[in-house]
Design a protein around this nucleic acid. Structure first.
Lengths: 144, 144
DNA sequence: AGTATTCCTACCTTATTAGTAGTATATTAT
DNA sequence: ATAATATACTACTAATAAGGTAGGAATACT
């Protein structure tokens, strides 16, 4: 049940944008450098966040990325969903036709509860909440 | 954040044993057949559960597997941990030396909360609880 | 025009998951 | 004893996904 680097990197990148909301677009290379992520890889992650409607891009010189909405309106679950896909611990939670026993399968219920537990945590936090948590606002202290 | 078949199969196998606790050992091939799992693959999963101390094996003819403890003393988190490894959403939760910023990293706190949420669900259920949940005790209704 | 940036798409490498195969070892029943 | 029935052990293989590279096209600012 490990988190993919995709999600971890993506959350960190989103936080970088959140921290710089007032200061205009942030370039991929800046984020990549600050967070120690491959530029080319991050490029792809940003594209995912963009198509999920969480960030907006500005092309060309002096371009970069900005959040598409205020940081207090972006829940961690939004970022998570975009990058990790829906938190579907098992196939049959998404696709009811996956298995005939769906209606009263005990293990399915368990995994559903696990999934719900994860989502409640992630839905309860916005990017802004996380920014507020950081003690030293200048240097965002996360690198996982 | 998908669950591996390893864990899914393992939980189902453990439930088969729980359901047959009073009736002596259950053979791998029986479980494999009932749960539609490859015999050879399940063999390996049972070995993992065994080395985790959750089941005991009886070799030779009329042998098979039984739970090492009463079903109400085996938490789902035990089975999960054995098969999936500790629910470590990120490396630094296990290994504090993994990253220098550990002490006040915001994202680490988030993943820790997620991890805690998952564990509380799994720790709150025993195999017996799940058996009790099944409506029709004869045919264990799970196949995910 | 020139430079800086995102955009797009294809590729590659490595790790993990899921599964197979074969043989050795232990236990029971005959 | 011997045959039959189980697990135990170890190695191999195939498929998939994760993580990352590469190159150039499109766009926008100066």
């Amino acid at each position: 049940m490990k988190l993919s680097t995709r999600t971890r990197y993506g959350v960190r990148a989103a936080l970088e944008l959140a921290a710089n909301q007032s200061k205009g677009p942030v370039q991929i290379k800046t984020i990549a450098h600050r967070q120690d992520i491959s530029i080319k890889y991050l490029e792809q992650l940003m594209a995912i966040l963009k198509s999920a409607g969480l960030v907006r891009s500005i092309r060309g010189a002096k371009g970069g990325y900005i959040l598409a909405k205020p940081a207090n309106q972006i829940k961690l679950s939004d970022v998570f969903n975009a990058l990790e896909g829906p938190v579907t611990t098992v196939e049959c939670l998404e696709n009811k036709n996956y298995c005939a026993r769906v209606t009263d399968c005990v293990t399915r219920q368990v995994w559903a509860e696990v999934q719900q537990a994860i989502m409640s945590v992630l839905q309860s936090m916005t990017l802004q909440d996380l920014i507020n948590r950081t003690k030293d606002k200048k240097t965002l202290n996360y690198q996982i």
